[in-house]
């Protein structure tokens, strides 16, 4: 074309910075495009509703529940709310929606091919999209976790709650819950990203995983460990009350195994996503 000199110069520039600087730049560009869609796209409405659900429930409860100064009991109540509502419902389905739509949503919109027609390694595309989903889910669900916890403690005894948080165990519990939420986003996010790549209808595998995680407390010890929720529950600062008398007790997996284990699993899942996308074709259903 007319300015082939420009082209050659740009190409030389690209070659010089190969590979890490280029990949980083490309990941950033993908991240910026995706984060905008995640936060402001029409699909984000559902995520905001999900993230707001515990806040709405706890805010409403704060108005009607009797006053208590029993912080140990409040901690157990929060552990129950966190495990049952925030982690298993909000974070699970929120991550499912965000991460499955990273690829599947673009296939439905018929716009994924623009990425495939760019001179970018498809593995870099996976990383850029995954990071955008991770940042989105982390910001929303960490905010949900923090606000939900504060809503439980602060409405009645703000002075004592402040002491519980800044002098007692409150702050470290809050940080631990935040950490678990981030880990959940990392783990579930990778899983759902891959599901969105492999399955035309990703809702079914998502529901299968949800069912598996939901009956986790009933499973024998060995099977319990083949789940994300087991490792996340192992990290909770306050054990949640058992949901059923039929639950099978099992020792929590120590944090030094749970955390790196989840991270390694995530890395393996993302590698599978990279391998899958390398050979992926664009067919857009009826085309």
């Amino acid at each position: 074309m007319s300015s082939s000199v420009d082209t050659d110069r740009a190409e030389a520039g690209r070659k010089l910075s190969f590979p890490w600087a280029l990949w980083l730049r490309q990941s950033r560009a993908i991240f910026r495009l995706e984060i905008r869609k995640n936060f402001f796209g029409k699909r984000s409405v559902l995520i905001y509703l999900l993230a707001f659900l515990p806040i709405f429930l706890l805010g409403s409860l704060a108005l009607v529940t009797p006053v208590t100064e029993d912080f140990t009991n409040l901690s157990r109540i929060f552990a129950w709310i966190y495990g049952g509502l925030i982690l298993r419902t909000v974070v699970f389905f929120g991550c499912a929606w965000i991460f499955m739509n990273l690829f599947r949503g673009e296939m439905v919109d018929r716009s994924l091919h623009y990425y495939f027609l760019s001179s970018v390694r498809r593995e870099v595309l996976v990383v850029g999209k995954y990071l955008s989903g991770l940042v989105t889910s982390t910001i929303l669900f960490v905010a949900t976790t923090v606000v939900a916890m504060l809503l439980l403690y602060f409405p009645h005894f703000s002075g004592e709650s402040a002491r519980f948080f800044f002098e007692g165990a409150g702050f470290s519990q809050l940080l631990t819950y935040v950490g678990i939420t981030i880990l959940a986003c990392i783990g579930y996010g990778a899983f759902f990203l891959v599901v969105g790549l492999f399955f035309r209808n990703p809702i079914i595998p998502a529901l299968v995983l949800y069912g598996w995680e939901a009956i986790n407390f009933l499973l024998p010890p060995l099977l319990k460990k083949i789940s994300v929720i087991h490792y996340l529950n192992s990290l909770t600062p306050v054990p949640a009350p058992e949901a059923s008398p039929f639950g099978v007790m099992v020792e929590p997996t120590p944090a030094w195994i749970s955390v790196p284990g989840l991270l390694i699993l995530t890395a393996l899942v993302l590698i599978a996503a990279g391998a899958r996308i390398r050979h992926m074709e664009i067919k857009y259903g009826g085309d």
Binding site: L33, D109, S111
Partner: peptide
């Protein structure tokens, strides 16, 4: 230039072109 008449949502024409140049690693 494919036949798929669809675009990423919410972008202007300029943003669309520029975004995918950036994705390609152009400064």
């Amino acid at each position: 230039c494919s036949q798929f008449d669809s675009f990423p949502r919410g972008l202007t024409g300029r943003e669309f072109i520029k975004s995918f140049l950036l994705v390609s690693g152009i400064g």
